[in-house]
Simulated scan of single mutants.
Amino acid sequence: MSRIVAALAVLFLSLAPAAAKTLVAEVSLSQQVLTIIYKGEALASWSVSTGRAGYRTPRGTFRPQRMYRDYFSQQYDGAPMPNAVFYDAGYAIHGSYETGSLGRPASHGCVRLHPADAEKFFDLVLTVGPENTAITIRD
């Protein structure tokens, strides 16, 4: 009987890989850096731009709510937001062609990335699944 229970436990664990996948995008507002952490291991760090004076980037821990490869702002004159991962209403992590601003606050509140890094992040979220992804924005 214990062999059957052990075999069922092994089978169950092998069928549940999604639960083991954990992707964390950790944004440091003070350092203007997004760190990608997968299963507890830091994989990459990318420069970002977050909310400039007069605009805030919401702090907290979120899950991706919706994702678009090609998105244009409905609030800011159709500004391109490639590989947008929305996490809190209208706030997203997305690519920006204003790469000279990366590393300092410059956005209306979104987290801007270099377009190539935004594409990598988008693909990671798709691979792991939004339900297995956390976005943490601190300090």
Rank of each mutant, 00 (worst) to 15 (best):
H108E: 08
D117T: 01
R69S: 14
M81T: 00
Q32A: 06
T57E: 11
Q75T: 06
F86K: 12
T57A: 05
L113K: 04
T99V: 15
S30G: 00
L113R: 07
S101E: 09
I93C: 06
R52T: 06
P64I: 02
F121V: 13
E131S: 11
L126A: 09
I137F: 09
S30K: 13
D88C: 02
M1T: 10
L29Q: 12
P105Q: 02
T61M: 04
T136M: 02
D139G: 12
Y76D: 02
F86A: 03
E119S: 07
Y91G: 08
R66H: 11
D123Y: 08
F62Y: 15
R138T: 11
Y76T: 01
D139W: 06
R52A: 13
G103S: 04
R112K: 04
T136K: 11
R56K: 11
A116V: 09
A92P: 03
V33P: 09
L43V: 11
A25L: 15
A18P: 00
S30I: 05
L23W: 02
L13C: 09
A7Q: 13
A20N: 08
P130H: 04
A6P: 00
Y71P: 00
V85Q: 13
T35N: 04
G78D: 05
L43R: 15
R112L: 08
Y68D: 14
R3N: 14
A25M: 15
I135M: 12
S2A: 07
P115Q: 06
E98Q: 11
K39V: 01
I4N: 08
T127D: 14
Q32P: 09
T35G: 09
M1E: 09
A19S: 12
A116G: 11
S107A: 04
A42C: 00
S107Y: 03
A20I: 00
V27M: 12
A79V: 10
R138D: 03
A134M: 06
Y71H: 15
P105H: 07
D70E: 12
A9H: 05
E41W: 11
R66P: 08
A9W: 06
N83R: 13
L113I: 02
E98H: 11
S2L: 13
G100W: 15
Y55V: 10
S28I: 01
R112V: 05
S47W: 06
H94F: 12
F62D: 03
E98G: 03
P17Q: 11
I135C: 07
S47T: 03
A53Q: 06
Y55W: 15
F72Q: 09
Y97P: 03
G109N: 13
S107V: 08
P80T: 02
I137V: 14
Y97N: 12
